[in-house]
Amino acid sequence: MESCRTWYGKALLELARRDPTIVALDADLSKSTMSTYIEQEFPERFIEVGIAEQDMIGIAAGLALTGLRPFANSFAVFITGRAYDQVRQAIAYPNLNVKLVGSSAGLSDFGDGATHQSIEDVSLMRGLPNMTVIVPADHIQTRAATLYLGTHTGPAYLRISRTETEAIFPDDYVFRLGKVDRLVGGSDVAIVASGTITATALDASRRLASIGISASVVCVSTLKPLDAEDLIDALEETRNVITLEEHSVYGGLGSIVAESLGSRGGYRVHMMGVKDRFGQSAESFTDLLDCYGLTADDVVEAACQMIGKQP
């Protein structure tokens, strides 16, 4: 198991070694977001703004205006929520080259509870014109997406989980903006997942195979701009679609897939995610996912219901 945020922090450091215009900001969470790596090696290119996310976003905008490439770090809930107006007014609207990195995203900060968990961040960010939204599924994709953002131009939001992951992608995986990754083929039902919960989709697919149900798994890491044609191609084998995300079903992956498929007709979409509830504290991440109906068992049950088979 590898830590996504550590892989992010090391990838950012790698970018900083290559490119002297890479700078990082943090709002007193550098040892959680892992911007601490760049802080230690390049203190002159790290700006500690204190516990002041709104200020941090404005500063990041100012840095971008001088030609630098700032990565602003905080918890997902704060960088997208606390500083939403600053992101809208000072980053997205002027279309500035700032990367927003939201750490401890989704329910992954299980102990801290609802105040620190982000179930609406993707929805908030993708509603902003000019904003790119990327949600990696494992540490490999986290690194690949971070390296990609080192040369990307314009505003982007990168959602980083606090959890550890088994590798889904090969070591040499290269991130392709807008493209989906077909992980498993299958003809009865398609599980479309984003983020670290993609591992749960793979687990569910294996369990479904053992009971004779063929379930494909499609990983969507670019939530905006998503190449809808690429998604449609990945769904060529079946029109029964389950979306799975560690985010509210309002405005996240489920909405995006439904928007992409809606005008084409003929698809059934069942959305799995957090159903209009806030998070809460729990003893473990697994317990929390179980409580919100986001386990492999839940996916198996949904798939069986969708195609009218007994689990």
Partner: peptide, 19 residues
């Protein structure tokens, strides 16, 4: 710099000064 929503400009100025 694009402005309008009040209170943001001084942070942007800080960023330029850091730059």
């Amino acid at each position: 710099m694009t402005t309008g929503s009040l209170g943001i400009g001084l942070s942007v100025g800080c960023g330029m000064a850091f730059g």
